[in-house]
Design a protein around this nucleic acid. Structure first.
Length: 241
DNA sequence: CTTTGAATCCGTCTATCATA
DNA sequence: TATGATAGACGGATTCAAAG
């Protein structure tokens, strides 16, 4: 890669200069570009501790500095690996921006990065799902639904999946290779994502009213029937390749 | 449907540096 | 030296997904 002082990275309206130190790039700058500096999740340190073993750490020349102006630095391969861990869209933006910068085409890199990324439903859905999970957590804590929290969580989420798609969580994943939530996000299917949000809201209300698992299952029976009738499995399979 | 372990998130603490 | 800012370290909580 051509030696450059720094690279201007654009993502989702954020513009961040990725600084260099001894030929290594600051992953914290990438994190700022990805989150807009608004989130602590998926920080470089989390990537280091969760993903990497010692061997890979050396492969990416990972170096960390504590304190003000500190950070985690990595080589170009490390930058791509970290970006890939964060998000596919972000990874594409980084890949194209860095490769253009390496060719000395800084303006081109900016244009490419700016045009390559659009907002997805992912963050919105994640926020909505938090509230939904919290409602399940509260119901389990108060004893309205019995059993281990993990089980209650999995069962009710599977119930929602069935009310939206007609298939329970496991069956859906077997058919499409991913969860219903991820599938709808990947299809940018706002209509059915809206249905999912509505069902989750309904379950939240039922939990809040003190209903247990079987009562909620019964209450969603009509939604399940409707989903079975309306879900165009073959259409989605075809459009999904 | 249940169990289990891995992955990820996030709050809190610690370390380090800059500045007054 | 005190204080504030920034980033890593740590560990518990939460979420996800594979296997039984």
């Amino acid at each position: 890669m051509k030696q450059v002082e720094s690279i201007s990275l654009h993502f989702m309206g954020n513009t961040v200069t990725v600084n260099q130190k001894d030929g290594l790039f600051c992953l914290n700058d990438l994190h700022r570009a990805y989150t807009g500096g608004m989130s602590r999740k998926q920080k470089p340190h989390d990537w280091c501790k969760g993903i990497l073993n010692g061997e890979k750490s050396r492969h990416y020349n990972l170096i960390t500095f504590k304190g003000k102006h500190g950070g985690t630095y990595a080589n170009e391969q490390g930058v791509y690996a970290y970006a890939s861990w964060l998000d596919d869209d972000f990874h594409n933006a980084v890949l194209r921006t860095f490769s253009s910068a390496a060719r000395g085409d800084a303006e081109g890199a900016v244009k490419i990065a700016q045009s390559s990324v659009t907002l997805t439903w992912r963050e919105t859905l994640r926020e909505g799902n938090k509230a939904f999970c919290h409602a399940i957590y509260t119901a389990q804590k108060e004893g309205n639904v019995k059993g281990n929290l993990n089980h209650v969580m999995a069962n009710i989420q599977s119930l929602v999946c069935k009310a939206v798609t007609g298939l329970d969580g496991t069956a859906f994943k077997n058919r499409y290779g991913m969860s219903a939530r991820d599938f709808l996000v990947s299809q940018d299917d706002g209509k059915r994502l809206g249905v999912m949000a509505r069902i989750e809201g309904k379950v939240e209300a039922l939990l809040d009213a003190g209903m247990d698992y079987m009562m909620i299952k019964a209450a969603l029976a009509k939604d399940v029937m409707k989903a079975i009738e309306s879900w165009r499995y073959d259409d989605f399979t075809a459009s999904n390749g």
